[in-house]
């Protein structure tokens, strides 16, 4: 399947292991990724807070570039925040033809135009795995079932709310896909309070206490529920849950120390890729224990 691919900023910035692991996993799933290397930041909610017309124009630009990729089935992103921020713009662009024309007029200089069409989509890798590739197809490709690994899903707000905007009417189980996937890959999904809550990242510069209390609490809940690691489709969640974890530990006054995997890393492990090539050594919280469990599986 050929896809217009928007990796986002953070996957090439502070979580390079995310973009790297996605590139390794893609060919194993027969995905041909055409990277949108001229596209701009989605705005991550911040540009929307600043000026809606600006963020709608910037994302219409990205959509237009994606629509221009010949033979692509659709557009894929690997960041919950990109998904949410872009879906918000798409909702406005699709709602009113006059507004859309005005936004497109600004793109004319570049010869770009966003076209509203029922067939075109922009999906996070998580949605794509379940809806476009299909769980059964994916199951056929698993060479190393992650048996015995207890994985706590962390979805990221931007792909679970608001359900009206995020296509839940057509796909009502989108808030369960990570659980389904974990189970299908042979691992055990961990139920805990924080799976669909906020990692606190949007507040890290403005209210560090509120931000890291959120991250710390969810990590603690996952640990108490017996998780070996968490998995998330959002690199911003990863920053607060992994990179900030030692700091978060102080805000909840307890030891933490639970690794957080990116979605393509978890899939990659089950497809037979090694932790090192998936960039797991680049995490702040060491992934040794999970790696050991996975290595034992390979030996068995």
């Amino acid at each position: 399947m050929k896809l217009a691919y928007w990796p986002g900023c953070v996957s090439r910035g502070f979580t390079p292991e995310l973009h790297g692991s996605m590139e390794l996993v893609a060919p194993r799933l027969d995905l041909e990724l055409i990277e949108l290397d001229r596209a701009n930041c989605c705005g991550a909610g911040v540009i929307a807070e600043h000026n809606q017309e600006l963020v709608d124009t910037l994302n219409a630009r990205t959509f237009a570039m994606a629509q221009g990729v010949e033979g692509a089935a659709g557009m894929m992103n690997i960041c919950s925040t990109c998904q949410g921020a872009q879906s918000e713009c798409q909702e406005r662009l699709d709602a009113d033809s006059g507004y859309r024309a005005q936004i497109n007029a600004t793109l004319e200089d570049e010869g770009l135009e966003y076209e509203r069409g029922a067939g075109w989509w922009n999906k996070n890798f998580l949605w794509l795995l379940v809806e476009e590739i299909g769980i059964d197809k994916l199951a056929e490709k698993v060479v190393r079932p992650l048996e015995g690994v207890r994985i706590a899903p962390f979805y990221g707000c931007y792909i679970v709310r608001p359900t009206k905007r995020l296509g839940y009417e057509q796909h009502p189980n989108r808030d369960k896909y990570l659980d389904v996937l974990i189970e299908m890959l042979g691992a055990e999904p961990v139920e805990y309070a924080g799976s669909h809550k906020c990692c606190g990242f949007p507040l890290i510069t403005m209210n560090r206490t509120t931000s890291l209390r959120q991250a710390g609490r969810h990590l603690a809940d996952a640990i108490d529920a017996g998780a070996d690691c968490l998995v998330t489709p959002c690199p911003l969640c990863h920053l607060n849950l992994d990179m900030q974890q030692p700091a978060a530990s102080k805000y909840v006054e307890r030891d933490l120390g639970v690794p957080v995997l990116h979605l393509p890393q978890m899939v990659g492990l089950a497809l037979g890729l090694e932790p090192e090539e998936l960039g797991m050594h680049k995490h702040v919280v060491k992934t040794r224990d999970v790696e050991r469990k996975v290595a034992a599986l390979a030996a068995a």
């Binding site: 699709d94 709602a95 009113d96 033809s97 989509w121 922009n122 999906k123 009417e169």
Partner: peptide
């Protein structure tokens, strides 16, 4: 919105 009343952007299409 004359031509698209109640149009909901369907993120997934």
């Amino acid at each position: 919105a004359e031509d698209e009343q109640g149009a909901q952007a369907e993120a997934g299409g």
